[in-house]
Amino acid sequence: MEPRLLLSDFLRQDLGLTGTHVGCEHGVCGACTVLLDGEAVRSCLILAVQADGHEVATVEGLGSVEDLHPLQAAFRQAHALQCGFCTPGILMTLVPFLDEHPNPAESEIREALSGNLCRCTGYQNIVDAVKLSTPVPAGW
């Protein structure tokens, strides 16, 4: 593999995992957020070769159409997505955040979302969805 291949492009083009989106490709929009060893990171700012020996989780691993992750179900219920472009990155940002803050204050939710741009839903419904899904029950 060429070392200059970004993790985001490796996921999308080589593995066909197109749930991870790319918007800006310079770290600003958050659409490409995945988990690297359980921590949210920008996959557009990591070389695919750097993931060697590490565990990568993408939105494909979160839930399925038949069996949505509770956070995905809350997003659907609260209408927290419109075009859905930002959604995978937002979900992958929120999963470790909710692990650390099972019962977050609204200000903490907004701060956690500050690194993800959504250009259509308007954030309010996203915040509502997070509130709907918290406090996080044990064993999520």
């Binding site: 690297l36 921590e39 949210a40 920008r42 700012l45 940002t93 690194g115």
Partner: peptide, 9 residues
């Protein structure tokens, strides 16, 4: 400094 996703790296 930036956002948690940036600070993780």
């Amino acid at each position: 400094i930036a956002h948690p996703q940036i600070r993780n790296r």
